[in-house]
Simulated scan of single mutants.
Amino acid sequence: MTGPTPGRRRAPSMSPELRRQMIVRSTLSLITEHGLAVTTGRIARAAAISEATIFHVFSDKDELLDACVAEAARSDDVVYELADIPLDAPVTARLVAAAGVLEAYLTRVGTVITYLEAGGHGRARRYSAAPAGGMREVREAFDSVVASLAALLGPEEESLRLPAPHIAQAFFDLLFARTRNPDYRPHHPQLVEIVQLLVHGSLAGSSQAETAGAR
């Protein structure tokens, strides 16, 4: 005679924050592949949860899409990579390296925003208007990247024509606009030209005196 069959152990429950992250990451992956044709049913299948679970975590699909933009804009890894660029390298080399780091990040953010705009997700239009617009999380992520870019200009602080944060913001805006261009190609030689233009100006042999006289 055999004894009673031992009961099956239940898998440990997932914390609300971990479940939220899983849903967002599953949605991001599907948006990149299918755009806004993604349904909550498909998201649920990808995340191996019930569709009702999604609406226990998010009030509606718009809130989920907002969370996807915020997740795509997270900049922790970018900030760490920018901090690893040696400050004793020439300034042009530093900015070219920084641009390379930012390309993947800005392409990731831009791809998600483009899909949301194409589907008429209203709040996404504010994200593309300016890096400072949109949700608090997105704004803070962009601000942290700009601050890291400004830190790369520290060795030249005394000789800069504008404050380092202003130059860093202009550089960030230029790179972001570049990745939104339909003809954008990553790692294009133009990237080096953009950095050279930023560092040396647009006039051959220009001087600070000439620049001051034009103000």
Score class of each variant (00 low, 15 high):
residue 5 T to Y: 08
residue 7 G to T: 15
residue 9 R to H: 13
residue 12 P to K: 15
residue 13 S to D: 15
residue 15 S to M: 12
residue 17 E to S: 10
residue 21 Q to N: 14
residue 24 V to I: 12
residue 25 R to D: 15
residue 25 R to Q: 14
residue 26 S to Q: 13
residue 26 S to M: 05
residue 30 L to I: 00
residue 30 L to E: 07
residue 30 L to D: 02
residue 30 L to V: 04
residue 31 I to V: 07
residue 32 T to R: 12
residue 32 T to P: 04
residue 33 E to T: 05
residue 34 H to F: 11
residue 34 H to C: 08
residue 39 T to Q: 13
residue 40 T to N: 15
residue 40 T to R: 11
residue 43 I to T: 04
residue 44 A to D: 14
residue 45 R to D: 14
residue 46 A to W: 03
residue 47 A to N: 10
residue 47 A to C: 14
residue 51 E to H: 09
residue 53 T to P: 08
residue 54 I to W: 07
residue 58 F to H: 03
residue 58 F to L: 03
residue 58 F to Q: 04
residue 60 D to I: 01
residue 61 K to W: 12
residue 67 A to V: 00
residue 67 A to K: 01
residue 68 C to E: 01
residue 72 A to K: 07
residue 74 R to S: 11
residue 75 S to R: 00
residue 80 Y to N: 11
residue 83 A to E: 09
residue 84 D to M: 10
residue 85 I to M: 00
residue 86 P to K: 00
residue 91 V to K: 00
residue 93 A to D: 10
residue 94 R to L: 07
residue 94 R to N: 04
residue 94 R to H: 04
residue 94 R to Q: 12
residue 94 R to G: 05
residue 100 G to W: 05
residue 101 V to D: 06
residue 104 A to H: 07
residue 104 A to K: 13
residue 104 A to C: 05
residue 107 T to D: 06
residue 108 R to D: 08
residue 109 V to I: 04
residue 111 T to G: 03
residue 113 I to H: 07
residue 113 I to E: 05
residue 114 T to W: 08
residue 116 L to M: 11
residue 119 G to W: 05
residue 123 R to F: 05
residue 123 R to S: 07
residue 125 R to V: 12
residue 126 R to I: 14
residue 126 R to A: 15
residue 130 A to W: 10
residue 132 A to F: 12
residue 132 A to L: 13
residue 139 R to H: 08
residue 139 R to P: 09
residue 139 R to A: 09
residue 141 A to D: 00
residue 142 F to Y: 10
residue 143 D to A: 09
residue 143 D to M: 11
residue 144 S to F: 02
residue 154 G to P: 15
residue 159 S to V: 14
residue 160 L to V: 10
residue 161 R to S: 04
residue 163 P to H: 03
residue 165 P to S: 04
residue 167 I to F: 01
residue 170 A to G: 04
residue 170 A to K: 10
residue 170 A to T: 06
residue 171 F to L: 03
residue 171 F to R: 01
residue 174 L to F: 08
residue 175 L to D: 11
residue 176 F to V: 11
residue 179 T to G: 11
residue 185 R to T: 11
residue 186 P to Y: 05
residue 186 P to F: 02
residue 186 P to R: 06
residue 187 H to A: 10
residue 187 H to F: 12
residue 188 H to I: 09
residue 190 Q to N: 13
residue 190 Q to L: 11
residue 192 V to A: 06
residue 193 E to Y: 13
residue 193 E to N: 12
residue 193 E to H: 15
residue 193 E to L: 08
residue 194 I to E: 13
residue 195 V to T: 15
residue 196 Q to H: 15
residue 198 L to M: 07
residue 200 H to D: 07
residue 200 H to E: 03
residue 203 L to A: 06
residue 207 S to V: 06
residue 209 A to C: 02
residue 211 T to P: 03
residue 212 A to E: 13
residue 213 G to V: 02
residue 213 G to Q: 05
residue 213 G to S: 03
residue 214 A to E: 04
